[in-house]
């Protein structure tokens, strides 16, 4: 029964703690994320969102607890199953849009030149940047760089996609486009983990975890979290504040 459940999970985090020297970043954190959904990790700055994502993509190693990705203990061999869009644009400014995406396609073992070129075109069309493929990164706006960064993260069709604050600096129209695209990826079975501190992003996720001071203070669907406040018309922002206050009372 437990194995069958684990098979349906994209990510399992069990009692994970992480410290930066003496600073506690994550404390006894547990999460179970089903496959094929958009899962939002929400919280204020310093809540531990980026640390959690870095642990999940293998950039950090946890001292305590257990992490499983797609039912397996994460190893270097699993890196090609992961797409990662860091908080910074993380692009090579001297290269063109297409050269950046092509570089990451090569890194993720898309060896066949024709197939790679086709895939690069596909993702650049997807993020509406095919017409700008030969432009240098420096010529692009912040939103365009975000889109190139996303293209680099998805060029190898990963089943697990980690996006660290992907909509920061995007205008509302572009943000809606991003979420439309994430929904398309979900429908193809891709699991997306999004970290954000905006409730606008939260509303688009299938499930959410509210993080505060390295701990999960609430987890559920947006509707469940809003209903938990007891107010019929509560917003996610109100829900977040409700759980923060409740956590404060518990701590006291």
């Amino acid at each position: 029964m437990l194995d069958a459940m684990s098979d349906k999970l994209a990510i399992e985090v069990e009692k994970v703690s992480f410290n930066y020297a003496k600073l506690k970043a994550l404390s006894d954190l547990s999460l179970r994320i089903p496959r094929g959904i958009s899962f939002g990790v929400l919280g204020p700055n310093g809540a531990g969102k980026t640390t959690l994502i870095r642990l999940l993509v293998g950039l950090l190693k946890q001292k305590e607890g257990r992490i499983q990705l797609l039912g397996q203990h994460p190893t270097r061999q699993m890196a090609h199953l992961i797409g990662y869009m860091p908080q910074q644009h993380s692009l090579y400014n001297e290269l063109s849009v297409a050269q950046n995406v092509d570089f990451f396609a090569k890194i993720y073992r898309l060896k066949n030149r024709t197939e790679r070129a086709k895939r690069v075109e596909e993702v650049l069309r997807l993020v509406n940047l095919w017409e700008r493929r030969n432009d240098g990164i420096m010529k692009l706006s912040g939103g365009m760089k975000q889109r190139v960064s996303l293209a680099c993260a998805i060029v190898h069709n990963p089943p697990l996609l980690f996006l660290d604050e992907p909509t920061v600096g995007l205008d509302p129209e572009l943000r809606a486009n991003f979420w439309q695209h994430f929904a398309n990826l979900n429908s193809r079975g891709v699991t997306i983990i999004v970290s954000s501190h905006t409730m606008d992003d939260a509303a688009h996720c299938n499930r959410l975890a509210f993080l505060r001071s390295g701990r999960v203070i609430a987890e559920g669907t947006p509707l469940q979290l809003c209903q938990a406040t007891g107010k019929p018309d509560a917003t996610l922002e109100e829900a977040f504040l409700y759980f923060v206050r409740r956590e404060g009372k518990n701590d006291a």
Partner: peptide, 14 residues
């Protein structure tokens, strides 16, 4: 500093 090393480290590159 551009963050590309972080991206590379999360990839299959050793």
């Amino acid at each position: 500093s551009q963050g590309t090393l972080e991206r590379l480290m999360a990839s299959p590159v050793s």
